[in-house]
Amino acid sequence: RCGYYVEKKKRFCRMVVAAGKRFCGEHA
């Protein structure tokens, strides 16, 4: 899952990502 920290939401993104990727499409 995406490891991007969403500052405005004060939590991690947690969106599912493709195999081998660290971030989702929105945060890549």
Score class of each variant (00 low, 15 high):
Arg1Thr: 15
Glu26Tyr: 01
His27Trp: 11
Gly25Tyr: 15
Lys9Val: 15
Glu7His: 03
Val16Leu: 07
Val16Pro: 15
Lys21Trp: 03
Tyr5Asp: 01
Arg11Pro: 03
Met15Gly: 12
Arg22Phe: 15
Arg22Tyr: 08
Arg22Asn: 11
Lys21Thr: 14
Lys21Asn: 05
Tyr4Ala: 10
Met15Pro: 00
Arg1Tyr: 07
Ala18Gln: 05
Gly3Lys: 02
Gly20Lys: 13
Glu26Gly: 11
Cys2Phe: 06
Val16Asp: 07
Glu26Thr: 04
Glu26Asn: 05
Arg11Gln: 14
Met15Val: 05
Glu7Pro: 02
Lys21His: 06
Lys9Glu: 14
Val17Arg: 03
Lys21Ile: 14
Phe23Leu: 12
Gly25Phe: 12
Gly20Thr: 05
Arg22Val: 04
Glu7Trp: 01
Tyr4Val: 07
Ala19His: 04
Tyr5Ala: 01
Lys21Leu: 07
Gly3Ile: 06
Tyr4Asn: 00
Gly25Glu: 10
Lys10Gln: 14
Cys24Gln: 00
Val6His: 07
Lys9Asn: 13
Glu7Gln: 12
Glu7Leu: 05
Tyr4Arg: 00
His27Leu: 15
Ala19Phe: 06
Tyr5Ile: 11
Gly3Phe: 08
Ala18Gly: 06
Arg11Ala: 09
Arg11Ile: 13
Glu7Ser: 04
Arg11Ser: 12
Glu7Arg: 04
Arg11Tyr: 12
Phe23Trp: 09
Phe23Val: 06
Arg11Asn: 08
Tyr5Ser: 02
Gly3Leu: 09
Ala19Asn: 05
Lys9Met: 15
Gly20Cys: 09
Met15Leu: 06
Arg11Met: 11
Tyr4Thr: 03
Met15Glu: 10
Ala19Thr: 08
Met15Asp: 04
Lys8Ile: 11
Gly20Ala: 08
Arg22Thr: 12
Lys8Phe: 08
Gly20Val: 12
Ala18Arg: 04
Glu7Lys: 02
Cys2Met: 08
Ala18Met: 04
Lys9Asp: 14
Gly25Thr: 09
Gly20Asp: 11
Gly20Ile: 14
Arg22Met: 10
Arg22Ala: 09
Cys24Pro: 00
Arg1Cys: 13
Lys21Asp: 08
Ala28Val: 15
Gly3Cys: 11
Lys8Arg: 06
Lys10Ser: 10
Tyr4His: 02
Lys8Gln: 13
Lys8Gly: 14
Ala18Ile: 03
Cys2Glu: 02
Arg11Val: 13
Val6Pro: 02
Lys8Leu: 12
Val17Lys: 03
His27Glu: 00
Val6Cys: 12
Phe23Gln: 00
Glu7Ala: 09
Val16Gly: 13
Lys21Ala: 11
Ala28Ser: 10
Tyr5Cys: 03
Met15Thr: 09
Cys2Gly: 01
Ala18His: 12
Cys24Trp: 12
Lys8Val: 07
Cys24His: 00
Val17Asn: 08
Lys10Ile: 04
Glu26Val: 12
Val17Ala: 12
Gly25Leu: 11
Phe12Leu: 00
Met15Lys: 04
Gly20Trp: 15
Gly25Met: 09
Arg22Pro: 13
Lys21Met: 05
Tyr5Thr: 03
Lys9Tyr: 14
Val17Cys: 13
Gly3Met: 10
Ala19Gly: 09
Met15His: 09
Val17Gln: 04
Cys24Val: 01
Tyr4Asp: 07
Val17Asp: 01
Phe23Ser: 02
Arg22Ser: 14
Val6Ile: 15
Gly25Arg: 05
Gly20Arg: 04
Met15Gln: 11
Tyr4Leu: 06
Gly25Asp: 10
Glu26Ile: 00
Phe12Asp: 13
Lys9His: 15
Arg1Asn: 15
Cys2Ala: 01
Val17Tyr: 00
Glu26Arg: 05
Cys2His: 00
Met15Ile: 07
Ala19Ser: 09
Cys2Tyr: 02
Val6Phe: 14
Cys24Gly: 01
Lys21Arg: 07
Tyr4Trp: 04
Lys21Ser: 09
Arg1Glu: 10
Ala18Pro: 03
Cys24Asn: 00
Val17Trp: 01
Arg11Cys: 09
Cys2Asp: 01
Glu26Asp: 08
Lys21Cys: 04
Phe23His: 08
Val17Thr: 14
Ala18Leu: 13
Gly3Val: 12
Tyr5Glu: 01
Met15Arg: 05
Lys10Asp: 07
Glu26Trp: 08
Tyr5Met: 04
Lys8His: 07
Lys10Gly: 08
His27Cys: 10
Gly3Pro: 08
Val6Leu: 11
Lys21Glu: 13
Cys2Thr: 01
Gly3Arg: 03
Ala19Cys: 04
Lys21Tyr: 05
Lys9Ala: 15
Phe23Asn: 02
Arg11Leu: 13
Lys21Pro: 00
Tyr4Met: 02
Cys2Asn: 02
Met15Ser: 14
Gly20Glu: 09
Tyr4Ile: 10
Phe23Thr: 08
Gly20Leu: 13
Val6Asp: 12
Lys9Gln: 15
Val6Tyr: 12
Ala18Trp: 01
Lys8Asn: 10
Met15Cys: 06
Ala18Lys: 09
Lys9Pro: 10
Cys2Lys: 01
Gly3Ser: 09
Ala19Leu: 09
Cys24Thr: 01
